[in-house]
Amino acid sequence: MLDVSDLVTAYGKIEALKGVSLHVESEKITCLLGPNGAGKTTLMMTIAGILQPRRGSIRLGGTELVGLSPARIVARGVALVPENRLVFPQMSVLENLLAGAYQRSDKAEINVDVERMYTRFPHLRERHQQLAGTLSGGEQQMLAVARALMSRPRVLLMDEPSLGLAPLVVAEIFSIISELNRDGTTIFLVEQNAHMALQVAHQFFLMEQGRITFKGTPGQLAEDEVIQRAYLGTRRTAG
């Protein structure tokens, strides 16, 4: 579904992505692991069109996304739940959702989708008039996910959704990720929490210093000794 090939993105002279290629399969959860500073967020921002790559291509079902504005990319069906959530703090929960549907003009359908989000995330219904900035971290993450879904994306990109959240909330987020995927959403997930990711993802990539250094299934990932040591630590029963 989403094909990234030989992508190079640089900040001035420093190349954060040094020729990244990967494939996100339709209706699966694909997870990108990697340490801090590996270039994971840069990759997400490049796919979303916020950053311009120096070269390479990003294709969504055959359409080239490189060179399109972020707004066009959203219209093509890619939505990013950014790192640190970035909800609109001075807008109500409902307004955040409506902003998520900014590219759409089907008013009746938008209202149906808002209702769907409220059903999936009951907390948001309770707080629909509240300003997003006053929500808890977990609620903001739910809102960020719901906001992204409001554009009816073909691929949902999620940049470290578990960042800074309490373990229980992380578990909730991951169960929502599985649920969304069961309903047919293609998900491309960036994570540092490899234990949680192992439980939901179908396909893994490992990124180190701007390059993809591993590709495989959860089984292969768990077997790889180097990855075991670096990212999974001594095996514990993950929460």
Binding site: A48, I50, A71, L86, P89
Partner: peptide
């Protein structure tokens, strides 16, 4: 208002 809140996020919602 979305831009005022978060310019990057405003890009991301299209």
């Amino acid at each position: 208002r979305a831009i005022i809140g978060h310019p990057v996020a405003a890009h991301l919602v299209g």
